[in-house]
Design a protein around this nucleic acid. Sequence first.
DNA 1: AACCTGACGACGC
DNA 2: GGCGTCGCCAGGT
Length: 111
Amino acid sequence: MVNPGPHDKHALIFEVVREVPYGKVATYGQIALLAGLPGHARLAGYAMFNLPEDLADSVPWHRVINSQGRVSYSESRRGNDHRQRELLEQEGVEFDSRGRIDLARFGWKPE
DNA sequence: AACCTGACGACGC
DNA sequence: GGCGTCGCCAGGT
């Protein structure tokens, strides 16, 4: 269990993100589904936005991207989107010329 | 309570 | 495949 707190659904989401393996990526919708919250992709995104600082090491937040295979951009992220891409490239995840990841190659496919 | 705003996504054109 | 629309839901005002 991770940081129960007032947001149990967030905790459920973080638990699933923890399972995304090195060098692979998962979509927000996929994370929500595996957390038992089908259709709550937005909640997954909201949870990631509010990821507690102290969980950044144990939860591979950078491996979560949107269904288009892109790192989600938002003004409010203030550069964290660029950091996310760096971390993924460090793991061998490739981006095409338009900043997209081939989900067929790098998408996480849990057993 | 009403309304607005997103690290989203399926669908239609 | 790009783009707009429409559901979606939690939080904040």
